[in-house]
Amino acid sequence: MSQALNDATLDQLFREARTVHAFKPEAISDETLHKLYDLLKWGPTAFNAQPARFVFVRSPEAKEKLKPALSGGNVAQTLGSAVTVIVAWDSQFQEHLPVQFPAYDAKPLFDNNAALTQATAERNSALQGAYLILAARALGIDSGAQSGFDATKVNQAFFPDGRYRANFLVNLGYADHSGTFARGPRLTFEQATQVV
Rank of each mutant, 00 (worst) to 15 (best):
M1Q: 06
S2I: 08
Q3V: 13
L5T: 08
L5F: 11
N6P: 14
D7L: 14
A8E: 10
L10S: 02
L10R: 06
L10Y: 04
D11W: 12
Q12L: 14
L13A: 05
F14E: 10
R15F: 14
R15T: 12
A17L: 02
T19G: 08
A27Y: 06
S29R: 00
D30C: 01
D30E: 14
T32K: 05
T32F: 00
H34M: 11
K35C: 08
Y37E: 10
L40H: 01
W42C: 05
A46M: 06
F56C: 00
V57C: 01
R58K: 08
R58A: 03
S59D: 01
S59M: 02
S59K: 04
K63A: 01
K63Q: 04
K65Q: 09
L66I: 07
L66D: 07
K67W: 09
K67M: 11
P68N: 05
A69D: 07
A69K: 00
S71V: 13
G73H: 02
N74I: 02
V75K: 02
T78R: 00
T78C: 03
L79Q: 14
A82S: 14
V85M: 04
I86P: 09
S91Q: 08
S91C: 09
F93S: 03
Q94P: 06
L97G: 01
L97V: 03
Q100I: 04
Q100F: 12
A103K: 10
Y104P: 09
Y104K: 09
D105R: 10
F110G: 03
A114N: 06
L116T: 08
T117R: 03
T120W: 09
R123W: 11
L127D: 12
Q128K: 06
I133E: 13
L134R: 03
A135R: 06
A135F: 11
R137M: 09
G140H: 09
G140D: 05
I141L: 11
D142H: 02
S143M: 01
S143I: 01
S147H: 11
A151E: 11
T152R: 14
K153S: 09
V154H: 01
N155K: 12
A157E: 12
P160L: 04
D161A: 07
G162H: 11
Y164L: 15
Y164H: 15
Y164V: 13
R165F: 13
L172D: 00
D176L: 15
H177K: 15
H177Q: 15
G179Y: 09
A182T: 13
R183E: 13
G184D: 12
T188Y: 13
F189R: 02
Q191V: 11
Q191K: 07
V195P: 13
